[in-house]
């Protein structure tokens, strides 16, 4: 019994340490954001690396997410002959939920993990100390461009992902359950509004900010050499994924 209490207590303190550390780190980033001193080259490099290089994987994910959504509802649509609501059901779920959520998780796995690994390696090889020794604030030079790039690109990639999801949905609805693209589009455009699109966009922007802060926080907090980098990458991906679901829950509730 005492052992169980000790384990629960240790787990509680470990979680509190991570949450506390990330909160303090977020405060530092927020303070830096009040007097932004962005490095242009580093910002463009990150926008390219985070955005352009993620495009293929986001496009493929969104294409299949759209197709799978239609496939899931396909049998019910045929059974109920409710062809005219496919576009609405698809658009509502993809724009508001599936799109931002799946793209956020993919983004966290690809960009967030990569970012933690890069910053973690820089930390253990004293490159971050070298920056500070050169009178450069790592928050300004390393963190701000990355967080900004993730925030902006996550939103842009969600817009692009929505387009690919619609494409996947239309093609699947037409090819596998016989819904004419015109009927699909009519239902989609009639019932799915700007609010649904903006709802998803707001979520994805917050997810991008969350992934940026978590991945940078874990990267700069690495201790213990190469094994420490591995642990930080693992923890960063898990924390981002959990954070995405928790934030999604609250945003869904608030934006209803």
């Amino acid at each position: 019994m005492i052992g169980l209490v000790q384990r629960v207590g240790a787990w509680f303190f470990a979680v509190a340490e991570v949450v506390g550390g990330l909160t303090l780190f977020t405060g530092q980033v927020a303070r830096a954001a009040l007097r932004p001193r962005l490095d242009g080259v580093e910002t463009w490099r990150n926008l390219y690396r985070v955005g352009v290089k993620s495009l293929p994987i986001v496009a493929i994910t969104a294409l299949f997410a759209g197709a799978i959504t239609v496939l899931q509802v396909g049998s019910y649509v045929v059974k109920l002959r409710a062809y005219e609501v496919v576009g609405w059901g698809f658009g509502f779920s993809v724009f508001r939920e599936i799109g931002p959520l799946l793209i956020g998780l993919m983004f966290s796995g690809r960009v967030g993990a990569n970012n933690t690994a890069e910053l973690g390696t820089m930390t253990v090889t004293e490159q971050v100390d070298a920056l500070r020794a050169l009178a450069i604030d790592p928050i300004d030079y390393l963190v701000m461009p990355r967080v900004l790039a993730m925030l902006v690109m996550m939103a842009l990639l969600t817009v692009i992902g929505d387009v690919f999801a619609i494409l996947g949905g239309v093609v699947t609805a037409w090819g596998l359950i016989g819904v004419d693209p015109y009927v699909f589009w009519n239902s989609f455009s009639e019932y799915v509004g700007l609010a649904d699109f903006l709802n998803g966009l707001a979520k994805s922007t917050v997810f991008g900010l969350l992934i940026g802060l978590v991945s940078c926080g874990f990267g700069l907090g690495v201790r213990g050499g190469a094994p420490g980098v591995g642990r930080a990458v693992n923890a960063s991906v898990v924390a981002s994924a959990v954070g995405i679901f928790v934030v999604d829950y609250f945003m869904t509730y608030l934006l209803q």
């Binding site: 820089m122 004293e126 020794a133």
Partner: peptide, 19 residues
């Protein structure tokens, strides 16, 4: 400290060159 560090050059044991 940034102003002080601007007057210091430091060579690190493990190089610390930016990869």
């Amino acid at each position: 400290l940034m102003a002080v560090r601007g007057r210091i050059g430091m060579i690190f044991q493990n190089y610390a060159l930016f990869d």
